[in-house]
């Protein structure tokens, strides 16, 4: 489960299931759903903090995946990244449109990030990814980590991150760029 050979096989399998879905293979799509829905739902839940909204968004994302499966291009990235991008984008679009009516304690959420991954294990299906990500997150500076997490999990633009932290725009851009690059190196993402 944690070996890179296995995760490579998983990636190839998900890509071929997605291609079969593009040809209208519903059974293949059911397997895409099974493989991807925990990641999609977890991402939506994390960004939206509302199980009902997260479930709605999961449904939207999976239907979008079914309808646009033919647009998936393995040359441009993994099936998992394709689905994660779709999920995060939808969740962020939603959070940006409901932001004004919700009270969200972003700072607290950032501080509790690593802790939550450990504590909510009865709800969260622990994956090999979680440990690696938590480990690699520790390799970022505090300010890099804060900027990356505010941007990704709070759905803030880098401008909003700069406002929130009362930091200069170029500073925040560099923190995000250097932080994500460092994370990428640590995780070995290609």
């Amino acid at each position: 489960m944690t070996t890179s050979a296995t995760s490579h096989d998983d990636a190839a399998r998900l890509a071929s299931l997605l291609r079969a879905s593009a040809d209208g293979d519903q059974a293949a799509f059911a397997q895409v759903y099974d493989a991807a829905s925990p990641m999609v739902y977890g991402t939506c839940l994390r960004v939206l903090r509302d199980p009902d909204l997260a479930a709605e968004t999961l449904q939207d994302v999976m239907l979008e995946a079914w309808r646009t499966a033919a647009a998936f291009d393995a040359d441009r990235g993994s099936a998992k990244a394709w689905l994660a991008t779709m999920a995060h984008r939808r969740a962020v679009d939603r959070v940006r449109s409901v932001q004004a009516t919700r009270t969200r304690d972003e700072q607290d959420a950032v501080r509790s990030y690593v802790r939550e991954v450990d504590e909510v294990s009865d709800e969260v299906l622990r994956r090999a990814d979680a440990d690696r990500v938590a480990h690699c997150m520790q390799g970022l500076t505090d300010t890099q980590r804060e900027s990356v997490l505010l941007a990704y999990w709070e759905g803030l633009t880098y401008r909003e991150v700069a406002d929130r932290l009362a930091a200069a725009l170029p500073t925040v851009k560099s923190r995000i760029r250097d932080g994500l690059t460092r994370l990428r190196l640590c995780l070995g993402a290609r």
């Binding site: 994660a84 991954v117 690696r132 990500v133």
Partner: peptide, 17 residues
């Protein structure tokens, strides 16, 4: 590479729908 990195972030919070 950066998108694959964010996908790992997404995967790290997987939860049962």
């Amino acid at each position: 590479g950066l998108r694959e990195t964010t996908a790992l972030l997404a995967g790290s919070v997987a939860a049962a729908p």
